[in-house]
């Protein structure tokens, strides 16, 4: 399978956020300013790739041989939660600067459906190890790209006069809709 197409496909065509609707809570929550948005994006790329590797290994070498596929939801969320804890402790010990910029996003990531979603999609698509890593990293990069673009738009939005009732999350969702429409223009690129 062509890995390059997989990268393009998962960043642009099937953007995890704008086409598959995963990870909307942090999308609306931390996209008001560019700085935190970058932090969140990087944290998601990092955790999501790690989490996918672990969950993929657990699924194929632990659950599948035992016929316990039905437990994947339970096991995956525990693996992700534990992983996020470890990453947090590790970063705290290793680099103070990194912890200050990424640390606050890590607890949020446990309940970020993008991370869990990518882990589940890896299994659903039946990817092998290399495809899995490529898909996870580029899907997460798609998330980072979307949240980055979106934060830039929202910084502008802040100084424009929006009807009172539409301020905040409402206008954010409409903007996301317009962005999603723009991303639909990429459809057909991978065929």
């Amino acid at each position: 399978m062509d890995l390059f197409l997989l990268v393009i496909g998962s960043i642009f065509v099937n953007n995890i956020l704008l086409a598959q609707y995963l990870g909307n809570c942090p999308f609306c929550g931390v996209s008001k300013k560019l700085g935190p948005a970058i932090g969140m994006g990087v944290a998601v790329i990092f955790v999501s790739t790690l989490a996918s590797i672990f969950t993929w290994i657990v699924y194929h070498y632990l659950l599948e041989p035992q016929g316990l596929e039905y437990l994947k939801t339970l096991v995956f969320i525990l693996v992700i939660a534990a992983l996020v804890q470890f990453v947090e402790i590790f970063i705290k010990k290793q680099s103070k600067g990194l912890y200050d910029s990424l640390g606050i996003f890590l607890p949020l990531i446990t309940t970020n459906c993008a991370v869990m979603g990518i882990a589940l999609l890896n299994i659903k698509h039946g990817f092998d190890f290399v495809e899995m890593i490529v898909f996870s990293a580029s899907s997460a990069a798609g998330f980072a790209l979307a949240i980055l673009l979106f934060a830039s738009v929202r910084e502008r939005l802040f100084i424009s006069s929006v009807p009172v009732a539409m301020r905040g999350t409402a206008i954010a969702l409409v903007t996301a809709g317009v962005m999603s429409l723009a991303f639909m223009g990429f459809a057909g690129m991978t065929n």
Partner: peptide, 21 residues
């Protein structure tokens, strides 16, 4: 499709806010 979902939810939220206000 995806854009419609975002737009629909955003407008509903706006309507709800206007009504509450």
């Amino acid at each position: 499709q995806a854009p419609g979902a975002f737009l629909c939810l955003g407008l509903l939220l706006g309507l709800m806010n206007a009504w509450s206000r």
